[in-house]
Design a protein around this nucleic acid. Structure first.
Lengths: 240, 240
DNA sequence: TGTTCTAACTTAACGCCGTGTAGTAAATGT
DNA sequence: ACATTTACTACACGGCGTTAAGTTAGAACA
């Protein structure tokens, strides 16, 4: 049924739905997430606000769609940066991921706020929502980075813990991609996530402005300390 | 001029100004920061929205005052937790600070969002604002924690850097409180801040919900790794 | 081709919101 | 007792999300 040949109507409809998101992103770029207004979008498109309800159930629905798009774009960016570094350079890959995350956040502060800040007043990420998929990709990517350093890292981790009570969704997904990797590695990946997120969030939200003028070096120091704590000393491991 | 004996008018005025903030905090507790509405506050107080303009220039001014109050309360809380641990137990003090930060954030998620999230659409923390003072207190507190571990920590810091380009305000303030402590120690304190902030922010904003069920242990692992990276092994240093 | 149907859109309204302006009543200072 | 300042109300403006009813242009079918 129209899967192969979308009718003219379906095509126009999809184009309009996409234009709404594009215009919304433009409004967000100047004026922040609060500038995403159905009336402003409609104004920009030569429509009336009510018309948008034919494409998105509510404003929150639209914003959720934007979150998914932006989150996906972020994950695409950091994954690309990671893949530009040789796979045997575990430290380099972590640095690339981390620095690209910060650069993306500084270049798209509104997008970063949209993803990690208050998305919508009473917003709750839908359980199986599409945005959760981007989060899982990010987490899986970090797990991959940690996995590459796991042998060195595990020696520095005191106490084995059991770490068996992870969310089944993630555990299943990551186990499928990294068979044999213990849950503790995922825990470590989440901690790495938190470590990268912390300074970037503080910087994006302006909390470092009054404290330092070189947040970039601060962050680089932190990433270097991170790779060191994973047992990755500076250069990639030369083949034995 | 009434400094010693506030007139009846001044007292009533101060009480009303305080009640506005109290009611606003109550509204925020249920319904989030977006529930802070001049009309709702006035409704709750049996007034009209316009009356509030006699106490706060604008809604953003009120919210800024709330941020200051909440931030101050947070810093008071973590400082008290720190001071409940003997001064010679550097690792214990850091753990106390970090865990209390998380507990406060989970108990007052809306307050955490208010401080560290998007406070107000076009909000920019005023350069010398009162909220900046709370931030400086937090930073100074962390610097104190780092200072106690500095001898052990400095050995693990590769490369001395110079770190002389700090914001003069903070450098002056911290230097006054910790004379002789190099700027690099403040840099390390900021990194510690970022490390604590990262996981707490991710958890408060719900980004860990789909990934793990035991964010608390994750965070504790991170704090333990943090103290270890500062050269503080588990127990306080016994007197030589 | 002519008719019917339907999806896309407009218009108008409701109740919120922040924010000004003008007016009122009471407390205050002299 | 009177003048002034203060605290507040009443009202209006424009903008917001959202909904219900009405309109129109294009697709579908005879």
């Amino acid at each position: 049924m129209g899967v192969s040949t979308p009718s003219r109507r379906e095509r126009l409809r999809a184009e309009t739905a996409a234009e709404i998101k594009t215009v919304a992103l433009g409004l967000m770029a100047e004026g922040g997430p609060d500038a995403i207004t159905l009336r402003a979008i409609a104004r920009e498109m030569g429509m009336t606000a009510g018309a948008i309800y034919g494409y998105y159930e509510t404003r929150d629905t639209l914003v959720s769609a934007l979150i998914t798009d932006v989150y996906t774009s972020l994950v695409d960016t950091v994954e690309a940066a990671r893949d530009a570094v040789p796979a045997d350079d575990a430290a380099g890959r972590i640095l690339a991921w981390g620095q690209t995350l910060r650069e993306w956040a500084l270049a798209n502060p509104e997008g970063f706020r949209l993803i990690y800040g208050d998305p919508v007043p009473g917003y709750q990420a839908p359980e199986g929502g599409a945005a959760a998929e981007a989060a899982h990709r990010a987490c899986a990517g970090l797990t991959g980075l940690v996995a590459a350093a796991w042998p060195q890292a595990v020696a520095r981790q005191p106490g084995g813990y059991d770490w068996t009570d992870f969310d089944p969704i993630l555990t299943g997904l990551v186990r499928a991609e990294f068979p044999g990797l213990p849950p503790a590695a995922v825990a470590l990946a989440l901690r790495v996530w938190g470590r990268m997120h912390g300074l970037v969030a503080l910087e994006v939200y302006g909390h470092l402005r009054g404290q330092t003028k070189d947040a970039g070096r601060l962050y680089l120091d932190e990433l270097r300390d991170l790779t060191r704590s994973l047992g990755l000393e500076g250069r990639p491991a030369a083949p034995a």
